[in-house]
């Protein structure tokens, strides 16, 4: 197992969002998170990425194997496509950005400033960062936003080759990526009731 979650409870701010959630991600597998807006997909991914500490339960994974990609791409408008990606390559200590650029069909744009990219091109550059990170567990929050149908297929192809090399991915998405064999987890049953809280001030007020 690349990542195991047992009886996890997580919150965003003071609000308990999810409770009693367990899941596992094996090498070579994709887990798709489903749930309506506001059901806690982002919160769950941020908790798994280590950005938000869990309220309860355990997450078993090598933190050095995880990379997270959220709604924002983390691009610098004043840097070129290649400079943006080279920065992340040196942060993650990997070499070579050409393969990642080629995978997302960005080679022709490598010297263009990120501020002159279209929304879909920015997203592709943000996703190319996953490849230069060299990490096995990808936590993706709505990765296909602003991608056209053709690039969704390109992205699905990148996911497939990532799985081929022993990686895994947890993806929160509303669309069908066209991946053959995916696990799907609907997180809405794990929604915390609004009375579950852990705020000492509120507890005293309601006691």
């Amino acid at each position: 197992m690349l990542l195991t979650v047992d009886n996890l409870a997580c919150r965003r701010g003071d609000l308990h969002v999810l409770t009693g959630l367990s899941l596992g991600l094996a090498a070579g597998r994709v887990l798709v998170l489903r749930g309506p807006n506001g059901s806690g997909k982002t919160t769950l991914l941020r908790t798994l990425a280590g950005l938000t500490p869990p309220v309860g339960g355990t997450i078993t994974a090598d933190p050095e194997a995880i990379t997270y990609s959220g709604h924002a791409d983390g691009l610098k408008a004043q840097l070129s496509v290649a400079e943006n990606l080279e920065f992340w390559a040196s942060v993650f200590g990997t070499l070579g950005i050409d393969a990642a650029l080629a995978a997302f069909d960005l080679l022709g744009l490598r010297d263009r400033q990120a501020q002159n990219l279209s929304a879909g091109q920015k997203r592709r550059l943000g996703l190319a960062r996953l490849l230069v990170s060299g990490r096995k567990i990808w936590l993706l929050d709505e990765p296909t936003v602003s991608l056209d149908a053709q690039n969704v297929q390109v992205f699905a192809g990148v996911i497939k080759s990532h799985l081929m090399t022993g990686g895994g991915a947890i993806i929160a998405t509303h669309i069908d990526l066209g991946l053959a064999d995916t696990d799907v987890l609907d997180i809405s049953p794990f929604r915390a009731k609004s009375t579950d809280h852990n705020n000492p001030f509120l507890d005293e007020a309601l006691a």
Binding site: R46, A49, G50, L51, E64, I66, T67, Y68, S69, G70, H71, A72, D73, G74, L75, K76, A77, W88, V91, F92, G93, R129, S133
Partner: peptide
């Protein structure tokens, strides 16, 4: 923080 780089830096090896 605004463009999301800080999230990514916080989950990076640095």
């Amino acid at each position: 923080f605004e463009d999301g780089s800080l999230d990514l830096l916080a989950t990076s090896p640095l």
